[in-house]
Design a protein around this nucleic acid. Structure first.
Lengths: 190, 190
DNA sequence: CATAAGTTTCAGAAATTTCTGAAATTTCAG
DNA sequence: CTGAAATTTCAGAAATTTCTGAAACTTATG
């Protein structure tokens, strides 16, 4: 591997983290390299930069494409495939969220729903089902929130994030206004 | 494995998903079993239920404890350790979020900060650093939001989730009010 | 249509992770 | 202190995942 030290550190870190993120080392390294490079790279550039086999690069790029994390580019007059990551980090975040949900959450949600349809055979199953129902309700609440929030444009999303817990202040303010409104029309009620 | 079919399906699913969630099959199965059981189980209960070796159970329980996902219980007059999961699924969610952040995000944040301190040696490194800065800024925005929101009590958190993107309507309403306020004092300005 | 440049596939090698059984250690009652 | 009950550790076996090199395939071009 013959990369500038800063880029090499970044690439190696992504490789090491790969296993914690559910991807493998090579996939992590390739992604990091593409992310930190100013222009698109072809497979042989990656082979040279990371000192791994050509076929490993091919398989790993295929996996990154399955994740929608890389963009395939063509340079006029060149038959080779070139790859980059999207420029916009918010777009990357959205893709990552969507793909992780698809792989890590949706299958469980579908199993939970299926198991909740079954008739429990005994007390033990009845209890288990009540637990699955709790888990199902929580995941549905989270995914509903996600489905809603992901439609926001990036500017609003960023505003929302910056506010953090302060949005609850707004909610409280709204509640007070509503409550005052009610006081006017129904005096004596809280 | 001799479990009621419903529980068995749940346990096997968690085992299979384990690898996608960054834990291994046994750990996933044990967690699922504890989650769906109405009372605490001891290691030998787990050995019997899942048909795996005693030592594997011991190691896996140790890992679940490292994740803070199980609670160690003692039954008076019994020397064995018994395990359960917390009853409150929101509490489980909080623990999961905290531990995943610790393992999957914090190390990267610390590497990014370190690499951003370095002086770039050439144009290629200068560009890479600008990309790392973008990534760092995004992750910091997300973790700041998380640190803020995680302090909310569960009721407010649930309210916030139910609102979803509708909170932006509140923001817009606030903006309009502020804007009207400004119009009154500085007429002609937007 | 022959060929050269490029890509993908895949069987098996290499590396890593998971799991087990046996031995070591801990803990507590008598 | 002794020993029985329980847990933990750990070396190596088993299983799984990752990686490679060779061969197969694809596609554009002279």
């Amino acid at each position: 591997m013959n990369l500038p030290p800063l880029i090499q550190s970044f690439v190696l870190h992504f490789g090491e983290m790969g296993s914690r993120w559910g991807i493998n080392r090579t996939v992590g390294q390739i992604y990091a390299l593409l992310y930190a490079s100013s222009g698109p790279l072809c497979a042989d550039d990656i082979v040279e930069a990371l000192a791994i086999s050509r076929s490993n690069v091919s398989m790993s790029l295929r996996e990154l494409q399955a994740w929608n994390l890389v963009i395939l580019r063509h340079i006029p007059g060149d038959r080779r495939d070139f790859f980059t990551t999207p420029d916009d980090v918010w777009q990357i975040l959205r893709t990552l969220a969507e793909e992780r949900k698809k792989r890590e959450v949706d299958p469980t949600l579908s199993v939970l729903r299926e198991l909740l349809m079954q008739k429990p055979g005994n007390e033990q199953e009845r209890y288990a089902q009540s637990r699955l129902a709790e888990m199902n309700a929580l995941i549905e609440q989270l995914t509903n929130w996600y489905d809603d929030v992901k439609r926001l444009d990036t500017e609003r999303l960023a505003t929302l994030l910056s506010l953090g817990a302060k949005v609850t202040k707004l909610l409280d303010a709204k509640d007070r206004i509503v409550s005052i409104g009610r006081k006017r029309t129904e005096p004596g009620k809280p």
